[in-house]
């Protein structure tokens, strides 16, 4: 989009600020990092949404103008993250899972404290150990953390429909030492719930009988993984419509797990151990 001769003065200007005008040179690594900072902000404007913030159309903007606009967008995202985090924290539950607790109660505040919009907007600073259902490795900085937190908000919404004791019982049946696990809570609870939905069995009726396992085997045996996934998606869609006011964003977030769920069911069918995934 912009040529090097337009970007270098921006990096030079940023470097001067970085060194407080007290150094005429920096290492290659520092210069690279500052160049990435400039590019990160410029790329922010390519994601859309900047039209409302700038009266100057994209094709007429200089690199400096685009960079300034991108920085403003990054700042806005930080404010959005802060707001989302504080809203979520009020009723946040970690269900005993340490990795989730660490990232929410320590990781996100640390990110908000350390995040450097000006000199390192591309840095994520966190390892985000608790896995979410979306790939986010190609994102970085505020984009990655904001998406990550949004996913956690969706997960909390999903899990809120269940009694917290029920959730922890499922997790404990899944793995007695689940607190130390690095697995997504929703994936386990969702999978268990699919059994109820398939059998049209109320969630309040806990546990599965031998006959129910057999019925599920008969319903699913012979189906391909892709077919299983389609069945799961249909069940999920109906359930989200009734139990979550048809929250489409939650639905599409959980759709990311249906492939994995179908694979697990196929595996359990093959090994005759549906009781390992349909627990309560």
């Amino acid at each position: 989009m912009y040529q090097m001769e337009e970007l270098l003065p921006l990096v030079g200007h940023l470097t001067a600020k970085y060194t407080s005008n007290e150094s005429t040179s920096v290492t290659y690594e520092t210069a690279q990092r500052l160049m990435e900072a400039v590019l990160y902000c410029i790329r922010e404007t390519e994601q859309g949404g900047e039209a409302a913030m700038s009266p100057v159309p994209a094709e007429s903007r200089s690199a400096a103008q685009t960079y300034e606009l991108g920085q403003q967008m990054v700042l806005q995202k930080v404010q959005k993250l802060r707001k989302l985090y504080h809203h979520m924290l009020g009723e946040f539950q970690d269900y005993g899972m340490k990795s989730l607790d660490e990232v929410v109660r320590k990781g996100i505040p640390e990110f908000l404290r350390r995040y450097d919009v000006r000199f390192s907007p591309q840095e994520t600073w966190l390892t985000l150990d608790y896995p979410i259902l979306l790939e986010h490795g190609d994102l970085s900085g505020i984009d990655e953390v904001l998406l990550y937190l949004q996913c956690l908000v969706w997960e909390q919404r999903f899990l809120d429909a269940f009694d917290s004791t029920y959730v922890t019982e499922i997790l404990r049946e899944w793995n007695a030492g689940y607190e130390e696990m690095y697995e997504n809570i929703c994936s386990i609870v969702l999978l268990n719930t699919m059994g109820h939905l398939l059998l049209q069995k109320p969630l309040q009726e806990r546990g599965y009988t031998g006959a129910e396992y057999e019925r599920m085997e008969n319903l699913w045996r012979g189906r391909s993984q892709e077919e299983l996934e389609q069945i799961l998606r249909k069940l999920l869609k109906g359930w989200i419509a009734s139990a979550y006011h048809n929250d489409q964003r939650l639905l599409y977030y959980l759709y990311n797990e249906t492939g994995n769920a179908a694979a697990r069911i196929c595996n359990a069918l093959y090994n005759h151990c549906l009781n390992r995934i349909f627990i309560l």
Binding site: V11, T15, T24, S25, T27, Y28
Partner: peptide, 17 residues
Amino acid sequence: ALHRTRRVEFGGGILPQ
């Protein structure tokens, strides 16, 4: 020298100083 020491100068550089 900048290449050898893996440094980058923006602006006027240190030589005049």
